[in-house]
């Protein structure tokens, strides 16, 4: 089993016990992964991230980062972690350079690292400008630069591409992939856009209303997507077709036709043969390929059974 950088054991949190924001969340983020933490707005993503970083109380002490807890090793955990939570915390009356200088002194990082991270996020030209003159995207990038200062082993990023233009999104994505590939940085990032996560994540966790509905590798998510594919059939007499096909598992009437879980090309062919043999005209036979977006919606709106795959 690969080493887990983030591990929570039935994490629970609520400002009032009657209204939990996070429910029995057991996150497992393997070392070296890019873990996309997906969920609609208000699902509990930011709260979870604040909990991970010790910004919210966790009396059960069931969060482990690098195998350690905040109560025992707060400073060690924090020194190995970079983060960007909600809006970047910038001192707007100071220059970009000064903002980095403050974090770098506290983190005990060499001065020349400032120009390196500025280069990484492409802000070298604006280093001497006050942060209040920055655009939203530049602020986001400066926030990212602050997070990258100490070359952390773990990056906790809350919607890192928020407020960026398409170009900025691509650049940020490439930067994160590069950090992950070249330095083995584990990245835990939240997003409400599946498409965004799909493009870079190796692992995915889907959260809704504080509950983890799916956790696994992107391959596992893709497999689940395949499982969800449906064969759609429209015939000249759907009612009789249903009788003919009663041996096919999961067959059911569906609007203008019939549907059954898709099990492969052979299945489609044999269904077709059976219908034709019984004198039923087949007008339409197709695989409705659930794309991930739809799957995500199905998982989060509760129309699909929660399915928590464990990474092993």
């Amino acid at each position: 089993m690969t080493e887990l950088i983030i591990q929570t054991d039935r994490l629970q949190f609520g400002f009032r016990s009657s209204q939990p924001i996070v429910k029995a969340l057991s996150l497992q983020v393997p070392k070296g992964s890019i873990y996309g933490f997906l969920g609609p707005n208000g699902a509990g993503k930011t709260t979870t991230m604040r909990l991970l970083l010790g910004l919210l109380p966790n009396p059960e002490n069931n969060i482990r980062l690098f195998g350690k807890t905040m109560t025992d090793s707060r400073l060690e955990i924090l020194s190995r972690t970079g983060n960007l939570i909600e809006t970047p915390s910038l001192y707007e009356h100071l220059t970009g350079w000064d903002n980095l200088d403050i974090a770098r002194r506290v983190r005990g990082v060499d001065r020349k690292r400032i120009s390196e991270v500025l280069e990484l996020v492409k802000l070298t030209h604006a280093a001497k400008k006050k942060a209040k003159t920055y655009s939203l995207g530049m602020k986001q990038r400066l926030g990212l630069a602050v997070a990258l200062l100490s070359e952390p082993e773990l990056l906790v990023l809350d919607e890192p591409t928020n407020g960026l233009d398409p170009n900025g999104m691509i650049e940020t994505r490439e930067l994160l992939i590069r950090l992950n590939r070249d330095y083995g940085t584990t990245i835990f990032l939240s997003s409400h856009l599946l498409a965004e996560v799909e493009k870079m994540a190796t692992h995915v966790g889907i959260i809704n209303r504080g509950e983890l509905l799916f956790q696994g590798t992107v391959q596992e998510l893709a497999a689940m997507k395949a499982n969800q594919a449906v064969l759609q059939i429209v015939t000249s007499d759907n009612q009789r077709a249903l009788e003919v096909l009663e041996t096919v598992s999961g067959i059911a009437l569906n609007g203008t036709g019939l549907k059954t879980p898709y099990q492969g090309k052979e299945q489609a062919a044999s269904i077709n043969r059976l219908l034709v043999k019984n004198g039923i005209d087949v007008y339409h036979l197709s695989v409705a390929d659930n794309d991930l977006e739809k799957l995500f919606l199905q998982i989060t709106d509760g129309s699909m059974e929660p399915m928590v795959l464990q990474t092993t």
Binding site: R50, L53, G54, L55, L75, E76, L78, S79, T81, N83, I85, E86, T87, S89, L90, Y91, E92, H93, A103, V106, R107, V146
Partner: peptide
């Protein structure tokens, strides 16, 4: 107020400093 205005308490509390 510098910290309140910059929304930076959370940043301070996630720096490796007591």
């Amino acid at each position: 107020g510098i910290e309140h205005k910059s929304n930076s308490w959370k940043h301070l509390f996630t720096l490796p400093v007591s």
